[in-house]
Amino acid sequence: MVKEIERAGFPVVHMCTIIPISQTVGANRIVPTIAIPHPFGDPTRTPGEEKALRRALVEKGLKALETDIDGQTVFNG
């Protein structure tokens, strides 16, 4: 799915927890997320903290979309 959308010319950022699987399916811009059942959240935290965490992740995703890359890139940090 991610590959076909990118093939159509859109920059796509794949935000997911299991990076090797993302690499296997051929995503190019990859941002690691928190955990499989809650990639953009952490139920052990307060709702406010959780949202801040989510926002930081989405910011990372947008940055990835703004970044030119040569090949598969994992945006850590």
């Binding site: 927890t17 299991i18 990076i19 090797p20 699987i21 955990a35 499989i36």
Partner: peptide
């Protein structure tokens, strides 16, 4: 925390 990727695969 963390997932064992070989196990998951």
């Amino acid at each position: 925390g963390g997932v064992d990727v070989p196990s998951l695969t």
